[in-house]
């Protein structure tokens, strides 16, 4: 990214290797994720040279933190029904409405999202426009929402005639849905969750299991033995995801595309993530209940935070139910039905 204002500075395979090392080192979660994994690919594909030069370097340096503004109170899985509006004005747009579950908005600087610019369009997914805006702009109210364990994670956004200059429009007005889906359908399936997260966690899980199995000989060994198959499944799943992602990267490098296959990805990693962390917490027995804030010597530490984070996986970035619909309809050719 550092030298990339027209295209990414690293190949997908290099990115996979970087991620693997990042997680293997036990490095912390990144606040820049929304920008790096969603907005940056969108700008590479649909943004202007001016936008890439202006937005990407501070994003890469972590100086500008980005939030996403997609879901609305009445538009979750049925995202195309969204009602927040973008109205033309001199030199730009006026945004009004409400966004919610806006990841990282509680502490981010700017946000990107979809807005209805043409209420008269003949289908819900037409007439949407992709815009970026500042979270400290006049007319924006941010109400943080704590996640399941109370930590700040996302926020509600109330937008009242918020001015957005033309330079923060991505692509053409009315093309927002196509732009959003092109990044979602292609690289997002790969880049949203790198395999390094799971291979590193699986290795830590095996270490935990060996440690607990050793201890269990002196007390309750049955539990550790019954957990062996789940530990193995986590290892197998992490390896499968790693190889699947590498195969996807190879296909993209060879000029292919992923398309609906990224829905296979999404369901797989989100379920793997939960199963892996559940297994770790079960291995910890009575200590598994402690939160990551606990400082007891036997506290689960990152396993607890990882578990809470993993629980959201099947919900965000398109629920797993929506992904299964996509798999059934686009990969297996089943007829569309009522959702």
């Amino acid at each position: 990214m550092a030298r990339g204002v027209r295209r990414p500075g690293a190949s997908l395979v290099e990115w996979l290797l970087f991620e693997e090392e990042y997680y293997a080192a036990g490095a912390p979660g990144r606040v820049s994720q929304n920008g790096i994994s969603l907005l940056a690919p969108t700008l590479f594909e649909h943004g202007s040279a001016e936008q890439r030069a202006r937005i990407l370097p501070p994003m890469a340096r972590g100086e500008t933190i980005w939030a996403q503004a997609w879901s609305e109170p009445e538009s979750g899985s049925d995202l195309a029904s969204l009602r927040s509006t973008a109205r033309r004005t001199d030199g730009g747009w006026r945004l009004s409405g409400q966004k919610t579950w806006s990841s990282r908005a509680a502490f981010a600087d700017r946000a990107f999202g979809l807005f209805r610019s043409d209420p008269a369009a003949d289908a819900p997914h037409r007439g949407l426009t992709y815009l970026m805006f500042a979270l400290d702009a006049p007319g924006v109210t941010v109400r943080p929402i704590g996640r399941l364990d109370g930590k700040p994670a996302f926020a509600e956004l109330f937008l009242d005639e918020v001015f957005v200059p033309d330079e923060d429009l991505i692509g053409e007005p009315g093309q927002g849905w196509r732009i959003a889906m092109s990044t979602a359908g292609n690289e997002r399936g790969l880049t949203l969750r790198s395999p390094g997260r799971f291979t590193a966690a699986a290795r830590r899980l095996v270490a935990l299991w060996r440690e607990r199995a050793g201890e269990a000989e002196s007390d309750a060994g049955i539990e550790a033995a019954s957990l062996r198959d789940r530990v193995a499944d986590a290892v197998i799943g992490a390896r499968a995801y790693e190889l699947f992602a590498c195969a996807g990267a190879s296909r993209l490098a060879a000029g292919g595309s992923l398309g609906a296959e990224s829905s296979l990805n999404k369901v797989f990693w989100s379920e793997l993530d939960i199963a892996l962390h559940e297994t770790a917490l079960d291995l910890l027995g009575p200590h598994g209940e402690l939160s990551d804030a606990a400082d007891d010597p036997d506290a689960p530490g990152p396993w607890s935070d990882g578990y809470t984070f993993a629980l959201a996986g099947p919900i965000y970035a398109g629920t797993n139910e929506i992904q299964r619909d996509i798999i059934a309809e686009r990969l297996l050719g089943l007829p569309k039905g009522r959702r």
């Binding site: 799943g237 369901v267 139910e321 992904q323 619909d325 798999i327 297996l332 089943l334 039905g337």
Partner: peptide, 19 residues
């Protein structure tokens, strides 16, 4: 095959095979 209960079961079967 237009019912979600049917679709989702088949989707899960395919996910297992593709991984």
């Amino acid at each position: 095959g237009s019912f979600q209960a049917v679709k989702h079961r088949l989707a899960d079967a395919l996910i297992g095979l593709e991984f």
